[in-house]
C-alpha cells in the first residue's frame, strides 16, 4: 500500500474504512510499529516510528498505544484484573505499583466491571469481555487507541454500544482513537472517516 500523506489530529476519533484487503489493519499496525516501514515516515506524537527499532519500538507500543482487538483477545488463564494489567507483566518498561492497581480498579469501576476483577474470561458475558479489553487498552494511559474491528462479531445494537463505550473512554482518556471497522452504522460517532482504499489510490 502507498499513502502519500495522512495527518490525524491529537484526540481525534478516526474510523478506517474500506473494502476487505485494502490495508486498514496494515495501516493501523504500521502506525503502532508492529510492522516495519519499507519506505516513508510515520510520526506519532514526538515519536518518529521509522527510526525506532526493536525494544524501543516495543516500549513505545506498550506505553503509548492501547490495542483493542476483535474477539477481545483476553488471556483465558488470567483473571480480569490480571488481563487489564497484562502490559505491566510482559514489558519491563512499565512498573506495576499500587497506584497503577488502584487506577486500573477505578477504570474497571467506570466501565462497570469492578465486581468481576477476580473472574476469568470464561465466566464473563460478551459485553463484559469487551469492557475488559477496553480497560486493558487504557491501563497504561496511552495517547493513541487502536481498535481493530472490535464490533466485527456483534449485532447492530451491541455494535453501537461498544463503539460508544470506546469513544467515551478515548475522550475521557484524552487519547486519539483509530478504529478499523466495516460497520457503517457506527461511523457517525467519529470526527473523521478515512477510506484507506481511496487513500492508497491517491
Amino acid at each position: 500500500m502507498r499513502i502519500k500523506a495522512l495527518d490525524i489530529e491529537r484526540e481525534q476519533r478516526v474510523a478506517f474504512v474500506g473494502p476487505s484487503g485494502c490495508g486498514k489493519t496494515t495501516l493501523a499496525h504500521l502506525i503502532a510499529g508492529i510492522h516495519p516501514l519499507r519506505a516513508g515516515e510515520i510520526t506519532v506524537g514526538e515519536h518518529r516510528m521509522h527510526e525506532l527499532k526493536g525494544a524501543a519500538r516495543r516500549n513505545f507500543r506498550i506505553s503509548e498505544i492501547g490495542f483493542i482487538f476483535q474477539e477481545f483477545a483476553l488471556i483465558d488463564y488470567l483473571n480480569v484484573e490480571e488481563n487489564i494489567l497484562l502490559p505491566y507483566f510482559v514489558n519491563g518498561s512499565l512498573t506495576l505499583t499500587q497506584e497503577v492497581r488502584d487506577s486500573a480498579s477505578t477504570l474497571a469501576g467506570r466501565l462497570g466491571i469492578h465486581d468481576k476483577l477476580r473472574r476469568h474470561p470464561a465466566q464473563l458475558s460478551g459485553g463484559e469481555k469487551q469492557r475488559v479489553a477496553i480497560c486493558r487498552a487504557l491501563s497504561a494511559k496511552p495517547c493513541l487507541i487502536i481498535a481493530d474491528e472490535p464490533t466485527g462479531n456483534l449485532d447492530p445494537k451491541n455494535s453501537a454500544a461498544v463503539t460508544d463505550l470506546i469513544c467515551e473512554a478515548a475522550t475521557q482518556q484524552k487519547a486519539t482513537l483509530i478504529m478499523v471497522t466495516h460497520d457503517h452504522s457506527v461511523l457517525d460517532r467519529f470526527d473523521r472517516i478515512i477510506d484507506v482504499g481511496e487513500e492508497g489510490r491517491k
Binding site: N59, S63, Y88, N91, S93, T97, E99, K141
Partner: peptide, 11 residues
C-alpha cells in the same frame, strides 16, 4: 495512573 517508562523490556 502512572507508569514509569524505561528501556528494559523483560520482566
Amino acid at each position: 495512573m502512572s507508569a514509569r517508562r524505561g528501556e528494559s523490556s523483560f520482566t
